[in-house]
Structures are given as structure tokens and as C-alpha cells.
Computed example of a mutant assay.
Amino acid sequence: MKQELTPAHTFQYIDEILAQQSIHLLLLNPQKTLSTSFAELENLITEQNTDIQLLINLQETLESIVRTQLQNFPENIFWDFDFLVSSMIRQALAADEGAIPFLKVFGEKMVTLIEMFGTKTEIRFRYVHDFIYGFEWARWVQKEPQNRAHIEPFSLVFLDYLLAKGKELLQRISHGQVTSYKLQRISGK
């Protein structure tokens, strides 16, 4: 008997959550005007993988991330999830501990990061892309390119680095040692 996704476990449910919040789904890609819907992402995923447990857990993880993002970044501008989703699936399918345990750990780390850097803490980044869309990852890779060039921006290793960085930043804030976060010039530009 083929198991099907229930209405609460379809990716379209995440689109409905965003629609209820009247989110304008902008994205960084200048070739498109709106981000890929979660329903479209689900269609792309199911072309390659139809494991119902994987799909349910992926949907639940994404829903948790989106809900946390809405709560902690209410003014967020960009809603690109294409790369995050493809990275999650790729890593989950390759995980030694299995896809479902990987998704649970990944989701917990992402939720913690979003809560840590969001508007409800002392850090108060206004937008998710202030810390999650690659700038910090690029700086981190540049420090040890031979060892880190193969590590993805959404790898558990890098998420752990961001969690440590966030704790350090919160500690510095609590001790009044705040300096503004400066964008460094990347060599050659």
C-alpha cells in the first residue's frame, strides 16, 4: 500500500503559512521576481525521491525553520529556500546516521541559530540574510581554504561554527564589548 502525504505534511502547507503572513516572497536571484514556492520545491524533490518518511520529516523541518524565521525575523526580505532545501536533502541522504536523524539535528541547529540571531535577542539582526546567506561562510572558508573549500554553507560543521560565533557575540554584548560588524573587502574586488 502506497503511503501518501497528508494535507498537513505537504510542502504547500508552508506556502499557506507564508501567505497568511502576507509575506512578499522576494529573493536574491535577479533572474526571477519571486522565490520558488514550497509546493514547487516538493515537486522537484519527488522527481528524485519518493521516500514518504523523508518527505514528511523534510516538510516538518522546513515548517519549523519557516515558523521560527517568521517569529524572529518579522521584517525579513528574502525567502530563498532552494539552496537550503537542496543542501538539506543532499546531506540527509549522505548522512552516516541516516536521513531522518540528520534532518532532526539540522532542524534543531537552524531553529537555534534563527532564535539566537533574531530580533528577540541582544544580537537583533533584522534580516536572515545578515548571517545565513554566505558572507560569514565565505570569510570562514578563506581562513583555511584547503580544509574548508568542500564544506557547504549549510553543513552541520558550519552551523556549529555559527552557533559558537553567536554565543561569543552574545557574551561580548553582555560585557559591553560590542563593535559594529564590518564587511571586509574580499581580495581582488
Rank of each mutant, 00 (worst) to 15 (best):
L27V: 09
I17A: 05
K167E: 13
F117L: 07
Q69A: 06
L169V: 08
I89Y: 00
L58H: 05
F135S: 04
Q12S: 08
K143H: 07
I23T: 05
I151C: 06
L156T: 11
I89M: 06
L70M: 10
F78S: 05
I173H: 00
W140Y: 10
M1C: 07
L93T: 12
E63M: 09
H150E: 09
R139Q: 09
K120E: 12
A99S: 15
A95D: 09
Y161P: 00
F73S: 04
L54R: 08
L183M: 12
F78P: 02
D80K: 09
W79R: 02
L58A: 02
A149Q: 14
R139E: 15
R124I: 05
K32C: 05
L93C: 07
T119C: 14
Q12C: 01
Q71M: 11
L84D: 04
R172F: 13
Q146N: 14
D82W: 02
L27S: 08
E75K: 10
S37L: 13
K165G: 04
L93G: 03
L183Y: 11
T50I: 13
T61Y: 02
E40C: 04
K2F: 11
E42H: 04
K182S: 11
M110I: 13
G107K: 05
D51E: 13
I77V: 13
N49F: 03
V141N: 06
L162H: 01
T10P: 04
K165P: 01
L183Q: 11
I52A: 10
E40V: 12
L34K: 12
I151E: 01
K167Q: 14
S35Q: 06
G98T: 10
V111I: 15
L18Y: 05
R126F: 09
R139T: 08
S37M: 07
R124P: 03
D82V: 08
R139F: 03
V85R: 03
I14W: 00
S155P: 05
N76I: 03
F102T: 01
A19V: 03
L41I: 13
I151M: 05
F117G: 01
Q21I: 04
T119M: 15
I65A: 01
K165N: 10
F102R: 02
E144N: 12
F125E: 03
V85I: 15
E168R: 13
L169G: 00
V105R: 14
A138K: 15
F81R: 04
F135H: 00
R126I: 10
Q69V: 01
G118W: 02
I186D: 09
Q59T: 04
R139Y: 08
Y127M: 15
P101N: 07
T119R: 13
F83A: 11
Q53A: 11
H175R: 12
G176E: 11
G176I: 10
F125K: 01
I23R: 00
D130Q: 08
A149K: 15
T121F: 01
L27P: 00
S180E: 14
T68W: 06
L70V: 04
E16I: 06
Y127N: 11
Q31I: 07
A164L: 14
V105T: 15
K120Q: 15
W140M: 06
Q171L: 14
E152W: 11
Y133W: 10
I132R: 00
